[in-house]
């Protein structure tokens, strides 16, 4: 039962924060890229020459998972093997995972929807890729802000 000893609470909290920061945006990105991929394949079955355009649009919502990974990595980096984190630092690191986790998830899902619309736009008119990318990247902004906020909170631990 040493695992539950009081000294380890801080470390466990930090690990939960790291897991949260990656798992939640990871789920969001998977859903979004998956749905966009289905649309993209549909477009390609009609016109294989649009591969590059739809591939770029499909890949856009994957960045939230990358940001989540970055935050998780930074939080885990704060844990030193053999040294227990104190409760305060652990709680801060746990909280640091929340902005990235929650905002990243929502941002990925909605960016996925915009990407799908963009893919449909490319299907209808050849040159719509740039516009589609611009529209989709507007949603990305909030994930980037969440990344920075989480990053700043980690700095305080």
């Amino acid at each position: 039962m040493e695992f539950f000893s009081e000294q380890l609470v801080g470390t466990v909290l930090a690990v939960i924060g790291a897991a949260f920061a990656f798992i939640i945006p990871g789920i969001g990105s998977s859903k979004a890229v998956g749905a966009a991929g289905q649309s993209a394949a549909g477009v390609l079955s009609e016109d294989p020459t649009k591969f590059v355009s739809v591939m770029v649009l499909e890949a856009l919502p994957s960045t939230q998972a990358i940001y989540g990974f970055v935050i998780a990595f930074l939080i885990v980096g704060k844990i030193v093997v053999g040294e227990a984190l104190d409760f305060g630092s652990g709680l801060i690191l746990f909280l640091a995972g929340l902005p990235m986790g929650i905002v990243g998830y929502v941002s990925a899902l909605w960016q996925g929807r915009v990407s799908i619309s963009g893919i449909n736009m490319v299907a209808k008119q050849g040159g719509g890729m740039i516009q589609g990318v611009i529209l989709a990247l507007m949603v990305e902004m909030f994930a980037i802000l969440a990344l920075i906020v989480s990053f700043q909170i980690i700095g305080k631990a």
């Binding site: 902004m141 980037i144 920075i148 990053f151």
Partner: peptide, 8 residues
């Protein structure tokens, strides 16, 4: 966003 993207 100038800062945010640069930091990212």
């Amino acid at each position: 966003r100038l800062l945010a993207l640069g930091l990212a």
